[in-house]
Design a protein around this nucleic acid. Structure first.
Lengths: 335, 335
DNA sequence: TAAAATTTCGTAAACGTTTACGAAAACATT
DNA sequence: AATGTTTTCGTAAACGTTTACGAAATTTTA
């Protein structure tokens, strides 16, 4: 592996000059610049990143911690992050926490002494522990798809409003007994998707003078099977629901199957609305009405903020709420 | 950010000693080891990775180039890779090529001078160009989920045999007019999934004395919509197929919808079999019969080989063919 | 042509580690 | 107490860059 010194020797210049041409700095004549480039190419020289990082104190690498890369919601966010990082010359270290809190913490530890320039984080619940770990090391962090009350920039959507909109749509269609499938709630704070969406659900119901019925609320696990089971539970309850709102498309997909397996039809007998608008939701039968999140953009904006933070640029806003949108397909019907 | 020197000074030892304790080397007494650790903790010291990488000539980072992270097939492979890398102390730089050849090449370029210790690669077609790029820089590479005739280790499955098995299953059920939905074929060599599976398809048909009919073969794009369109084309053809084999579950999913939209029923009127066995295939209606690939294991084994390569350990075999398995659910019926 | 101004370049220190080598310290042996 | 062994440690060079500073070369100006 040729070094800067090899190039310098062959080109009859000092290493400083070689460095200058490879950093597009001034103070080098066109002739010598060309000669250096030529020799470098000949030798197959490329600057060593570790050496650069060492002296600059920056690696050009950011860490990315996500709960589960195989979840389409996250993988779309990851796409957004990766794309905008690449464009700005950063690389991304992927850390898949596998939905395990220990792995999350383990990864934070690893990232700290890998000297990543910053990290983008997504976790189900951003805790004191997380906050501590990052701030003590003074490493910039931004949350993608998750809000927090700590002093950490984030970009997400208004989950309360999003659920509120979905339920209001159902209410406008005449539905009165509306089921809800939420995600794991145990030990979660108010900054978590599921509880925010639950709040929106209750708010809409309340404003419409509808009472919230515990039998119509069930917990899923953000997987299709969990959605299926939760839906069955709701459908078999005393009060027959005419609609079900699942807090993720994957769970809504499970709910769709549950509806059919219970001998009912969607949307004729029960309407279903999902959340996220992943690719899949377009091709279910019936196509799923769902509230769309701008996943790619969430990732993209989060990455932009982080890189601005790293470069010491001032950032306009630390808390960014992106727009959601109810996309209406064929899984809901007037009742 | 405290350096090794800071802790050396505070602990009244030399930097060599500090280095020794942080590398678990001998030649340091228990007392001083403890003292160093204590001071280090107090200061919040952690060794600088760039400095380490510089002197060791290794970064402990591997590059991972995949066509599309949001494709569940790939994301499962990625999970396997990431998991086993983490266990062995390596980190993964994620490079999402977005199905674009230019991005692939761009990333190879980036990875080269980032000094990754090695790269795991997946592309639709491993070309001379790719081979060149890696070998010129002498950076170890292994292919995950893709074979090649170049001298590069890979781990994949026997695609010919897998398709062959699927078709034979259909034949054993009495099917004679079997459609095939393959992926993009343009300019592809024989080492590509789709063409291998096409070969298996033809082989099975041939051995059963069935003729292959061009009207029954259509091209998809590895997405649900592409599968849908291809299936429609096949179903509307002159010869009415009684079964369709889609070369990916996602496309099979589209085919399932096409069947229904054509006023037919699966499996009563037409059987469908997919490929991959992604999570989704279990929860379609009907649940999809499919040939399962060990995605996670493909990634995991590939990562292991790469890390062995990096560490100069001898590897038993360079070409690893993992087992596939036909998993039978409810999308096929005897005819 | 000489001085001034400008452009181009080289020297050397710094970044934070690891490690070969040898010195000092501690312990064991007579 | 003197010597030999073993354990523990420090010195200094190396890894491959970037960059401040000043020197040399070139161009401009008078």
């Amino acid at each position: 592996m040729p070094t800067i010194e090899d190039v310098a020797r062959l080109a009859n210049v000092s290493i400083a000059t070689v460095s200058r041409v490879f950093n597009n700095k001034p103070d080098v004549s066109p002739k010598t610049r060309e000669r250096v480039l030529e020799i470098a190419k000949e030798l197959g020289y490329e600057p060593s990143m570790p050496a650069r990082s060492l002296i600059k104190g920056k690696t050009g690498i950011i860490g990315l911690i996500v709960p589960d890369i195989s979840n389409p919601y996250y993988s779309e966010i990851v796409r957004g992050i990766e794309d905008t990082c690449r464009i700005r010359g950063y690389n991304v270290i992927l850390c898949n926490a596998d939905n395990k809190r220990e792995k999350e913490l383990e990864y934070i530890d690893i990232l700290k002494n890998r000297w990543v320039d910053g990290v983008i984080f997504h976790c189900d619940y951003f805790s004191e522990e997380h906050y501590e770990a990052f701030t003590r090391k003074k490493i910039p962090v931004v949350l993608a798809g998750r809000a927090t009350s700590y002093d950490v920039p984030y970009v997400t959507i208004d989950n309360v409003k999003a659920a509120y909109d979905a339920i209001n749509y159902l209410i406008s269609l005449g539905h009165k007994r509306i089921g809800l499938i939420h995600g794991p709630l145990e030990g979660m704070k108010e900054t978590v998707d599921s509880v925010e969406r639950l709040i929106g659900y209750k708010k809409a119901l309340g404003e419409a003078g509808l009472e919230v019925c515990d039998e119509l609320i069930a917990e899923g696990d953000f997987k299709a099977k969990g959605g299926y089971k939760a839906a069955v539970k709701i459908l078999k309850a005393g009060v027959k629901p005419t609609a079900i709102f699942a807090v993720s498309d994957i769970m809504a997909f499970g709910a769709l199957n549950a509806v059919f397996d219970c001998g009912l039809k969607c949307p004729e007998d029960v309407s279903v609305v999902g959340f996220d608008n992943i690719d899949l939701s377009e091709i279910t039968r019936p196509p799923l009405t769902t509230v769309a999140q701008p996943m790619y953009e969430i990732g993209s904006v989060a990455a932009d903020i982080l890189m601005n933070l790293i470069n010491g640029e001032s950032i306009e806003r630390k808390r960014i709420i992106l727009d959601h949108k109810l996309v209406i397909r064929n899984s809901c019907k007037r009742v």
